[in-house]
Each structure stands twice: as C-alpha cells, then as structure tokens.
C-alpha cells in the first residue's frame, strides 16, 4: 500500500470497509484511497466487484460495513461520471450541446434554463476535446469515439476534481481508444483525478499511477511498479 501520508488530500478515502449489495459483501477489508490528481485503473474479471465499487463511489449504494469518505469537493454530484453507453443513446435525437449541458444538472438550480456562463463552459470543454465543430451536430450521427468524447465533455461539466469512467473504450476501434486515452492523459496532466474501470490492462499499466486489481474477494492496490512485481499481474498476463 503506498502513499498513506496524512498530509495528502484524499478525494476518496476508504478504510476497512466492506462493499456489496443487500448486506452481501463482495469485497471485504477494503482499503482504498484516491488523492487529488491520481490516475487509478481498476481491473478484474466480471463479477469481481468493479461495478459495485463504482456505484459505491458514486453514492448509489452504501457500503455493507464501514464507510467511503468523499472529500467535500466531490460530494455526490460533483463527480464526472462516464457510464457505459446504452442502446437507447445510439439513435437518440439530441444535439451535442444538449448532451454536454445536461452535465450541469447536478448543481442546485433556480431557473429551468441554463445560464450563459454554463454554456460557455460547455463550449470550452468541447473545444478542449477537439469537438467544438460538432456542437450543433446530432449526437446519434457521430462515430463511437466522437460520442465518447461528447460524454467526456458532459462529465467534465459535472466534475469538480475527479472523473470516474466505466470501460470507456468498449466498442471503440483501437485508434479511437488511443485518442480517448490521450484525452484522459491530458486531463490528468491538468490535475484531474481519474478512476477508470478497464479491460485493457496494457494501456492501464502504461497510463495509470495506481492499479486496483479485484479478484474473487481479494484485491491488490498499489503503484504500477509494485503491481508489475506482484503475482496479480501474472494472473493477467497468463490469461492473455
């Protein structure tokens, strides 16, 4: 376990908690911290508890035991979440701008309209991801990689300091996945913390600072270097 220095500012802090559903723990004695600016990749097989972990971080379910402490800056709602795409979205008649602006709905609002500064920020996020020329395009007509970048811009509108991504490269061709990772790297360099569930262990190892590997109730959490030396990385490379 690395970096438990007290002076570090943790966005997510979780000590000896048990995560799961309906009083059924999937992961027990779970120690997990994410500091501001960390890049964490979560890997593991289906059913190992990746989505349980994400839902707990997002505040959709409560830990079975103990608690997951979120920093004031990212109380529920201020997390930029990029969920897996649904079938409905692929043919949804919505303009890119409409999608991106919906990221602001986490804020308390007095008026049912978006403010001018919110529109400006939404525009800026699109521009940052190289999507500003598509602001008025139809979301459903974009390519998979472009759609994912639109959803990333929406997540940025909601995000305070942390992005949570659920297998963002699913369904993307290798080029599009690569450019999505480049975008994430850029955001990470700007100081955004990233927690990403992924199947792509190679890019996880090459990009992340820390790896969380969930495996059948057991887990490894530590820096990439330590992960490569541990037996956990062997399990994965054997499977490849």
């Amino acid at each position: 376990m690395s970096g438990r220095e007290k002076e570090k500012k943790y966005l997510i802090f979780c000590e000896d908690a048990s995560l799961g559903y309906d009083n059924q723990a999937i992961i027990e004695h779970f120690y997990f911290q994410v500091a501001a600016g960390d890049y964490v990749c979560v890997v593991g097989e289906n059913g190992s508890g990746k989505s349980t972990l994400l839902k707990t971080i997002l505040g959709l379910i409560k830990p079975v035991k103990g608690e997951v402490v979120l920093d004031d800056a990212i109380r529920q709602g201020a997390i930029g979440y990029l969920p897996q795409q649904t079938q409905i979205q692929r043919q949804f008649p919505a303009s890119v701008m409409e999608v991106v602006l919906s990221g602001f709905l986490n804020r308390k609002r007095k008026s049912p309209f978006f403010r001018a500064d919110e529109k400006k920020i939404a525009w800026k996020q699109l521009k940052k991801l190289g999507m500003e020329q598509f602001a008025n395009a139809c979301y459903a007509n974009l390519s998979g990689g472009q759609q994912q970048r639109v959803l990333l811009a929406r997540a940025l509108c909601a995000a305070g300091a942390i992005l949570v991504l659920d297998e963002p490269a699913t369904g993307l061709d290798p080029m599009a996945a690569e450019s999505l990772y480049e975008n994430l790297e850029m955001l990470h360099e700007e100081g955004m913390a990233v927690v990403m569930v992924t199947h792509d262990i190679r890019s996880a190892v090459s990009q992340a600072d820390y790896i969380l590997h969930l495996n059948d109730g057991d887990y490894f959490y530590g820096s990439v270097e330590k992960y490569m030396d541990s037996e956990y990385s062997d399990i994965f490379s054997d499977r490849k």
Partner: peptide, 16 residues
C-alpha cells in the same frame, strides 16, 4: 432538462 437527462442517460443522471 431533467426529463431530457433521465431519458437520455439514466445512469449518468442518477450518479450526478
């Protein structure tokens, strides 16, 4: 706007 986001992406809406 809430109806839009609940229709477009319920998971995202819930998480935010």
């Amino acid at each position: 706007h809430q109806i839009f986001t609940v229709t477009f992406d319920e998971n995202f809406a819930k998480a935010t």
